[in-house]
Design a protein around this nucleic acid. Structure first.
Lengths: 150, 150
DNA sequence: TATACACGAAAGTCAGGGAAAGTCAATACC
DNA sequence: GGTATTGACTTTCCCTGACTTTCGTGTATA
């Protein structure tokens, strides 16, 4: 069995044992008990516990540091997932506006959130990057924001 | 639990017990009851109770000395304006995190909004633009989002 | 009486070390 | 060719101890 699978298994076990769908680990400790390099943990987290997979990671360095893995429970948020998946590599301002308006109308987000997202991907906000990057950037930022709502 | 967390907790407790949002401590005494080096108190104050975080510190040395921590309460819009103005042309991920956490702790934004903003300016979201633009972009996007809340 | 000075009791500063997580490029394994 | 794995290096955060600065007070002296 592969190391990455062992690590994945262990994290899932912790998540299942938790009422709150939260697993908190110490990187070096876990790496030790499993017997792998600490950085391997990062690899597993960044390849299998991404927001796209329905997980949120937060961490802290230094003494008493930790890594916290939250599993997101899919309910009506699968609608958001659907929207996220429908957004490609790039998105133009017009389509962006439509996506946000749809979210608002379908009640997935409230007015305040919609305005916030619109502000984040507005033309004004993106003037500091060259035109050729903007559609990529807009897609990426929009997707990350939508995922954060899950 | 980390010492810095204990100290933080105790100061917050004192602040919450105070009508005036003022906590007054004696450094050596607090260090003693908690069981840490006195200078550790300074560390906590300078890392978690800064003006950026919405606190003002004043102190006095010598016999009968003290440290006074004041929590500043601003109106929401002026506080947001203040934060926006304090953000320059560029902002690095670290400072960004502090700004957003600050907004959260001071109640300017709720948890959901904080997560949304963090997602919008996360490193992951910005991978599609070259490194040299990211700090400019982050500043711009963050400011636009904050302004949209007013 | 008034001034100066000494001394102790606080808080402040800073360099340094240790503990943890993050990053990345190179390599190994399907 | 893509996925795993590692190790070296970096960054962030925590904590301490030695030393410095500031303040109040008591005391000696002109």
């Amino acid at each position: 069995m592969r190391m990455s699978d062992l690590i994945t298994q262990e994290i899932l076990r912790l998540l299942n044992n938790s009422e709150m769908n939260i697993a908190e680990i110490q990187r070096n400790e876990l790496a030790n008990t499993i017997g792998c390099a600490p950085s391997q943990i990062n690899y597993v987290l960044s390849s299998r516990f991404t927001p796209e997979h329905g997980y949120i990671i937060e961490s802290r360095r230094g003494g008493g540091g930790y890594i916290r893995i939250k599993r997101v429970v899919l309910s009506q948020s699968s609608a958001l997932m659907h929207i996220v998946n429908s957004i490609g590599e790039t998105i133009d301002p017009m389509t962006t506006r439509i996506v946000i308006e749809n979210c608002l109308e379908s009640g997935l987000v409230d007015g305040k959130t919609a305005r916030l997202m619109a502000a984040a991907v507005s033309g004004n906000a993106m003037q500091s990057v060259p035109v050729e990057f903007r559609d990529y950037l807009r897609a990426s930022v929009l997707k990350h924001m939508l995922l954060s709502l899950i």
